[in-house]
């Protein structure tokens, strides 16, 4: 097999890997959704439960969809970077370079050049969040409209923020809670806990409101089309014609704009919290002290 043919085969395989997880999710959803009349705004479908000591661990549609999103993004990255050369010879390499450059610029502008290693993490959060929100365009339950998923990301970000705050030593971190006066300690602690809560609620509420409004409009259009076009003979009267296409207009705002916006904001807040929480002076003092100790130990 020639090299060009092999490359083409790999490309096709990767393209399939991008699309197939979503197709699998859609088929799974169609097969398992119980038929119902009218509107029903419930949480994600529960596929099965795994017994756990405290409470059963539910494997829902959301987990499956977010895994599909992860696989899809992974394959997309492989596809974009397949066959890259020093001198770009394909369009996708240009696109990939553009994305990487943009993210690097964003990090540089908002956090400073010290944090250049943060770029992959921020890009990953942005990508997974945007793709999760966009998955509702395919009729799936968007993973970001489930509190669990977004709260997981927010807790991850909170751990990273705390890690960076602790880099200046434990004492300055604890002391930070008692500023400007010790009476403020409870408020400061509440403010600290509020960070992940507000981050997750913001993202989750935005996407969830889109889902709820889309469901309400869908059901209203179904009723309207039954009222207006119900006189059509036979099965034609049962088809809700007004549902075709009209809800897609709302999707432009609620799914595409809102989803992309929230992904950007989540990443932006991550960057800002990490960059502002990092105690630079204390860290440098600590490093200098460590160096001195190492020097004296060497002597």
């Amino acid at each position: 097999m020639s090299k060009a043919k092999k490359d083409k085969m790999i490309d096709i395989l990767l393209l399939c890997m991008i699309i197939l997880p979503f197709v699998f999710c859609m088929v799974l959803k169609v097969l398992t959704t119980p038929g119902s009349e009218g509107i029903s705004i419930t949480g994600a479908l529960v596929y099965f439960e795994i017994p756990m000591p405290l409470m059963p661990l539910q494997i829902t549609e959301v987990q499956v969809t977010s895994l599909a999103v992860i696989i899809s993004i992974f394959s997309l990255c492989l596809y974009m970077t397949h066959g890259i050369a020093v001198v770009p010879n394909s369009k996708r390499q240009l696109v990939a370079e553009y994305v990487v450059e943009k993210v690097n610029h964003l990090i540089h502008d908002n956090m400073g050049s010290k944090y250049a290693s943060f770029a992959p993490f921020v890009a990953a959060i942005m990508g997974i969040s945007a793709f999760s929100s966009f998955s509702s365009l395919l009729g799936l339950f968007p993973p970001t409209s489930d509190m669990n998923i977004v709260a997981g990301w927010a807790i991850l970000v909170f751990v990273i923020i705390t890690h960076y705050k602790l880099k200046g030593g434990i004492f300055p971190y604890v002391k930070g809670f008692f500023e400007p006066v010790p009476i403020f300690a409870p408020f400061n602690i509440i403010g600290e806990i509020a960070t992940p809560v507000s981050m997750s609620f913001r993202h989750y509420g935005n996407v969830l409101s889109g889902v709820v409004i889309a469901t309400l409009i869908n059901s209203a259009l179904g009723g309207l089309s039954e009222m207006i076009l119900g006189w059509l003979p036979g099965f034609l009267g049962d088809i809700p014609f007004l549902r075709v296409g009209i809800p897609a207009v709302l999707s432009v705002y609620f799914d595409i704009f809102s989803g992309a916006m929230q992904a950007f904001i989540f990443a932006m807040l991550t960057m800002l919290y990490v960059a502002t929480g990092f105690p630079e002076e204390e860290y440098e003092k600590r490093q200098a002290k460590k160096k001195k100790k190492a020097l004296s130990a060497a002597q």
Partner: peptide, 15 residues
Amino acid sequence: MGCAIAETTGLYGLV
């Protein structure tokens, strides 16, 4: 960006 952040309190009510 600022609008989206200012929206948070409203979204608490919505949730």
